[in-house]
Structure formats: C-alpha cells, structure tokens
C-alpha cells in the first residue's frame, strides 16, 4: 500500500476530527475574546477592587499551562461534584486561557488610543461608557487584530491538547488510527499536514493584515 492510498483511507476520519478541532477553537475564541475584552476594560478603567480582581484572574489564566487547565476542569472538578463532557470541558478550559491571554493583547490595543481623543470625548461631555464604546474600543480592537489572529492560531493548535481528555479531535483521531494500525508515523504526518493546512495560511493572512494596518496608521 502506498502512503498516498493509505492517507486516502485515513482522510475522511481525520477530517471529522479536524472539524471537531475547528469547532472547539471557534467556540473558545468566540466566547473567550469578549471575556478578554471585559477583563481588559476592568483592568484599564475599573475601580481598585475590580482592577485587582481582573489582574489576578489574568495572571492565573496566563501563568497556568493550558494543559493543566484542561486536566483540572475535566479530571479535577468532578471531585467537587461538577462534571462536564469532554467537549464542554475542553471549551471551558481553552475559553479561560483565551480570555486571560487576549485581555492582555486587547489592553495593549486600548492603551494605544491617544489620550487626547479620550480627553476630547470627555470635553464633549460624552459619558465614559460612550467614550469606550464609540471611541476607544473600535480603534483599540483594530490595533489588536493581528495579535488576536496570531493568538487564534495558537488556540487552534491548543485544541490538540484535548486529546488528553478523550475528545475525538484531530490528534486523538490520528492516534487511535495509529494504535490500531501501528502506522503512527504515516497517520500522524497526515494529521500534521492538516494542521499546517490551517495554520500556515492563517499566519500568512495575519502578516498581510498586520502590514495593511500598519500602512494605514
């Protein structure tokens, strides 16, 4: 059997796994980034208490390896009577990681909005909420876009960690084919190519977006 025909037989199954990985990444980013934004705002403009809470949450989220987060949610929480299916546990863990990391990225973006514009809004009598909503967030998020895209690539790669909590994503699917056929190298290589097929175009796109944004600023 040639490698190519072998890959032909693995591909449909792996594709199913890839779709699970993509769905997991999409949910983690879709929920995590808004939380990251909220944390960034709390960190930048909340009162002392709110700010400290946000800082601590972010430090914990960033200091903890994503894999530990997943293990904790999936294997640890049941001892407190909370158990999740593996997809939910994976989504929860990666969402928390996303929130912590993106809050720092977004905070950098928000801080890049010139103080003069915020002052102008203040002098125009706009409320702090309106200033955030119409002036700071639209511009700050734009600045953060390339870094958020770069981070999204990492989170997509991070979905492979869900293999350890029995989620049938791409790596888990490849591994299980490997353990029944003993053709680990072949199937893992194909899986590797499938990851690359997503991450490399994404990273090229990120570079272009970064260039475009820097040209326009």
């Amino acid at each position: 059997m040639t490698v190519l025909s072998e890959w032909g037989t693995y591909f449909p199954q792996l594709l199913q796994g890839l779709l699970v990985s993509l769905r997991l990444a999409a949910i983690s980013l879709g929920v995590g980034i808004p939380i990251g934004l909220a944390l960034a705002i709390a960190n930048g403009s909340g009162g002392r208490v709110v700010r400290s809470v946000a800082v601590v949450l972010v430090e914990i989220g960033r200091g903890m390896p994503a894999l530990v987060m997943l293990q904790l949610v999936y294997f640890g929480l049941p001892s407190l009577g909370v158990s999740f299916a593996s997809f939910t546990a994976a989504a929860l863990g990666l969402t928390l990681t996303t929130a912590a990391y993106t809050s720092e990225i977004i905070r950098g973006g928000l801080q890049s909005v010139p103080a003069g514009e915020v002052e102008a809004a203040e002098a125009l009598n706009m409320s702090r909420f309106d200033t955030l909503r119409f002036i700071v967030i639209p511009q700050g998020m734009r600045v953060a876009v390339p870094s958020l895209m770069g981070f999204s690539i990492l989170i997509f790669q991070g979905t492979a960690l869900a293999y350890t909590i029995a989620l049938p994503e791409l790596l888990a699917t490849a591994y299980s084919i490997g353990s029944s056929t003993f053709r680990y190298l072949s199937v893992l290589t194909l899986a590797g190519f499938m990851y690359v097929a997503i991450t490399v175009p994404m990273s090229m796109l990120t570079e272009r977006v970064e260039l475009r944004l820097s040209r326009h600023l």
Partner: peptide, 23 residues
C-alpha cells in the same frame, strides 16, 4: 520554519515518540 511552528507541539512530540520508531 512555518511547518515547525504550524504543527502543534503535542503533535510533534507524538511524531517523534510514536512515529520515529518505525524508522
């Protein structure tokens, strides 16, 4: 460089640890 960065670290470890023995 793109491929090294584009494949998740855990997949690299699996390739090396479970895949290379067949070579």
């Amino acid at each position: 460089i793109e491929v090294l960065r584009g494949i998740p670290p855990i997949v690299w470890l699996f390739l090396i640890f479970f895949g290379l023995p067949s070579l």
